[in-house]
């Protein structure tokens, strides 16, 4: 794998994760539990899709084959997507969405917080800009974890269950593959081992404050970073890519 290949793959990992989880959040539009939350969740979705655009645009330039952000988003099949598996998991009820978002936001924040030091100018600038948004995402999902965990018996159950279900996808945040190794050596990528203990600590604290129980099953479901996804991504893409696939000659 060349450095260019690794960099392209790394862009996809970051951009696809934001795009797919942002897409999932956009499914809430018009159906949120209360108007204020509808607005908040659309806002997070908007930020994430916006971030995805900028990284995918950069990915196209790194690849050098003339592919645009839209070519990359709309004309790649499942096996070529590099997002974390957690991002593609279904919304479920608002509790499940919040748990998924909390686990992702807390990682995302710590990740970007390191990426600002990247020797790649695009990444450092991107991280700095995105952090301003992601800090709010993390506050939003953290506050809801606390309210739901330490709210009513029902709300407690409605976040504990998805926490147990989704926990297996969190190991992937820190799974290192060849792409990381190549890019860490030249100071471009984030050393995931460095942020792992910070993430564990933060998540443990919030889970405790929320009177929830930290899942004990440490099985790690990996694969997204290599393009091996869960069954859900195919349906997301079928829906998302419908128009450009059905009308290949059209621009929109």
């Amino acid at each position: 794998m060349t450095e260019q290949d690794a960099l392209f793959d790394y862009c996809l990992r970051i951009g696809d994760s934001s795009l797919i989880i942002g897409h999932r959040l956009s499914e809430w539009c018009g159906h949120g539990p209360i108007l204020e939350e509808d607005i908040a969740i659309i806002n997070v979705s908007l930020d994430l899709v916006g971030q995805a655009r900028s990284v995918l645009d950069y990915a196209g330039k790194i690849e050098g084959k003339g592919r645009s952000e839209d070519d990359l988003a709309y004309l790649r099949d499942v096996a070529f997507y590099r997002n974390h598996l957690i991002c593609e998991q279904p919304n479920g009820d608002y509790g499940r969405t919040i748990v998924r978002q909390f686990l992702f936001d807390s990682f995302h924040y710590l990740f970007l917080n390191e990426l600002v030091n990247s020797k790649d100018d695009f990444f450092s600038g991107y991280a700095e800009k995105s952090l301003k948004e992601v800090i709010y995402h993390m506050q939003h999902s953290t506050k809801w974890m606390l309210r739901m965990g330490d709210g009513t018996e029902e709300s407690h159950r409605r976040v504990q269950e998805p926490l147990n279900d989704l926990w297996r996808f969190t190991g992937e945040f820190f799974a290192v593959n060849e792409v990381d190794k190549i890019l860490i050596s030249n100071g471009i990528a984030v050393d995931l081992n460095k942020i792992k203990p910070k993430w564990k600590q933060y998540v443990r604290e919030i889970i405790e404050d929320a009177t929830l129980t930290l899942p004990t099953n440490d099985w790690e479901q990996l694969g997204g970073k290599e393009g091996r996804h869960t069954e859900h991504l195919g349906f997301i893409l079928a829906e998302m890519q419908f128009l450009p696939r059905a009308y290949p000659d059209a621009t929109w």
Partner: peptide, 18 residues
């Protein structure tokens, strides 16, 4: 929103609905 045919259109539509 989930079927917007470009990312620019998707963002614009999301912002509008918001």
């Amino acid at each position: 929103i989930t079927r917007a045919p470009s990312l620019r259109r998707k963002v614009a539509l999301l912002a509008k609905v918001q």
